[in-house]
Write a protein that binds this DNA or RNA. Structure first.
Length: 198
DNA sequence: CCATTAACTGGTC
DNA sequence: GACCAGTTAATGG
């Protein structure tokens, strides 16, 4: 979801800046806001019993989070942590609902966004259930690429560290490093220095 | 620069 | 593949 900044502000959205590695909200807290990223990156993560991190998603500019919980009364299922210095617009739930009522077009767009997220989530679940690590990585890249405008082959830059890819796929860094090299050999991806192009 | 972070390698289970 | 140990390369103040 990407809503015009002016509209967000006119309905009580406030700009907030976070430094790197700050919690924007924590798992188990009550959800009270809609969040939209203006600049920087945010990750949604959880930790398993062993303390291993699992990243559910990484959001960048013009992407929103917290919105699936705007329409239901549940607690946050994940933490939201800034990966770097970020600027975010935060809008209280009630204001958001009010905004949707006064902007039916946004309401429709919201439906489309939630639908698309649902759709890609199901694809991700399939890929992540795969025992084949190449499929896991490729599925992740396919998902990330879906937000990307360009259309050429092997030119979508995956702006993630190998560690982040590992935390997103449930694999180990070393495995990711080795799989990446294998995928380069099989010409599934290309490298620009260390950057992965899919 | 130096210190931190990320990428990589090799070996064991 | 996970897990561990150790090295090298890149990044940033």
């Amino acid at each position: 979801m990407n809503i015009d900044e002016n509209i967000l502000h006119s309905f009580g959205g406030e700009s907030i800046r976070y430094k790197a590695k700050e919690f924007i909200f924590r798992e188990g807290e009550h959800s009270l806001y809609y969040f939209q990223v203006i600049s920087g990156k945010v990750k949604l993560n959880t930790f398993n019993d062993d303390g291993k991190e699992f990243i559910q998603n990484i959001l960048g500019k013009n992407q929103s989070f917290g919105d699936p919980l705007l329409f239901i009364d549940r607690l946050y299922p994940t933490n939201a942590v800034s990966l770097e210095a970020v600027e975010i617009i935060r809008m209280p739930k009630s204001n958001f609902i009010d905004m949707l009522q006064k902007h039916p077009d946004l309401s429709l767009e919201m439906n489309a966004c939630l639908s698309q997220r649902l759709y890609y989530n199901s694809l991700m679940v399939r890929n992540m259930a795969s025992q084949n690590p190449i499929h896991r990585l490729q599925g992740l890249m396919e998902y990330l690429k879906s937000y990307y405008d360009g259309d050429c082959q092997h030119c979508f830059p995956v702006e993630l560290t190998r560690q982040q890819i590992a935390d997103l796929t449930g694999l180990r860094v070393e495995t990711v490093i080795r799989i990446v090299k294998k995928m380069v050999n099989e010409e599934i991806i290309k490298l620009d220095g260390r950057r992965i192009l899919y």
